[in-house]
Design a protein around this nucleic acid. Structure first.
Lengths: 216, 216
DNA sequence: TGTACATCAGTGAACGCGCGTTCACTGATGTAC
DNA sequence: TGTACATCAGTGAACGCGCGTTCACTGATGTAC
């Protein structure tokens, strides 16, 4: 009643509410059966709406998917930042945060790091988010003691010195790429169920990859 | 004419020929747009047949997919065995063979090592083939010099001593799993285009992972 | 406070498409005598 | 070699389903005077 009116009108608030419910249902579909199961008609049915009603909120299936991808990236960025803000910004902390995030919703992980969605081209801003994620890991790699010998000394390709801020960044970048690639190897096989047959605990393998770099 | 008649009748030969053309078209679809693009009607159209005609050759879409998965596994096993037979059975050789096989048809790689296909349960015999692949790598790991420190010492889970043939196998198995996981990390990100933005050559990263174990 | 109008959420019918799968069938190819 | 029959590849119509998307519309909610 007497409260300070927020800048959003009630209609706008309602609109955002419905939009977010649509996205929530969309995630339920994706979680259940992958990206190809994403269907506007299906979502409408779940919400008790007519299929065409959704077009008030998203102009096409593709736009919805684009927003989901964007949200997935942002969710990961947020998770890593939160971990860092809670003093878990070292490689062990970031690694665990990443792993939890992936296990929490495998399909969301694959939407970010999995095979490309067939007919889909991701927009420009997700590249920026992907860069942020790498930056967070790169920062953590700057603190790494000299256990560097345990990691491949892959030369970065020498473009015309693009975003090379600090000089010591190059080595940290190499470490970060290598670590993230290794972690992805474990996560991706684990989430796909490819360790099922083997007598091997992916959690241990994952931790081992981290411990190789981070003094634990 | 005067040749020794093979045990297959002409009809059987024709049958196998059509079956293999169907599978070939199926691979074209999968290569172009992933597993979800696999469609019996589409294949029939490409072959100039009526859609229902294919049911003479495969009882369902699922059976066709099952066979494709099986063939993919067998193709990889064959590729690795051929490499080994040509004296390239060390880790460097196997690694390169695996990489070429993956780059040759990314979707086929993902059918084997990618996220599970939504509605699909793979039959028992592919587990055996997956085991063969691991065995080939494990054998190659037995020859590895003592660069073992560069790899995580993940304890295998101690089941009731199942297929533990030789005693030194355990360490080779650990090495093999770790290496295959790392190589998968590189390949999977590369095939998905996730190195595109970064100034990093996946081929070098891949090779570096191999060189860590194999004296080159 | 009350009326006239604009905004906008949601509906329902319709279009065109593709899918997997069934069924009764035609016609050619092989086999048995 | 010739006829009678069985086998089997392939057809065409049909079923039921779901999809994304368009369009003209109803009715409720907000806004301006």
């Amino acid at each position: 009643m007497g409260e300070a009116a927020s800048t959003t009108t009630p209609r706008e608030r309602y609109r955002q509410q419905v939009r977010s419910e649509i996205k929530q249902r969309a995630w339920e579909q994706i979680t259940a059966a992958g990206t190809s199961a994403l269907s506007l008609n299906g979502i409408a049915r779940l919400m008790g709406l007519s299929g065409t009603g959704l077009y008030r909120y998203f102009t096409s299936r593709d736009e919805l998917l684009t927003e989901l991808v964007h949200d997935a990236y942002q969710s990961l960025v947020g998770t890593l930042r939160t971990a860092a803000a809670q003093g878990k910004g070292d490689l062990a902390g970031l690694g665990q945060a990443l792993r939890m995030w992936a296990l929490d919703d495998p399909q969301r992980y694959f939407l970010v790091y999995g095979p490309p969605v067939p007919g889909y081209r991701s927009p420009a801003d997700v590249a920026a988010l992907a860069g942020e994620i790498m930056d967070i890991f790169t920062d953590a790699c700057a603190d790494v003691p000299d256990a560097r010998a345990s990691t491949p000394e892959t030369p970065l390709e020498d473009g015309p010195g693009q975003s090379v801020g600090r000089a010591e960044t190059a080595s940290a970048q190499r470490l970060a790429i290598s670590l993230r690639t290794r972690l992805h190897g474990v996560l991706s096989l684990e989430l796909s169920g490819h360790f099922a047959g083997m007598e091997c605990d992916p959690a241990l393998l994952y931790q081992a990859e981290i411990d190789l770099l981070a003094s634990h």
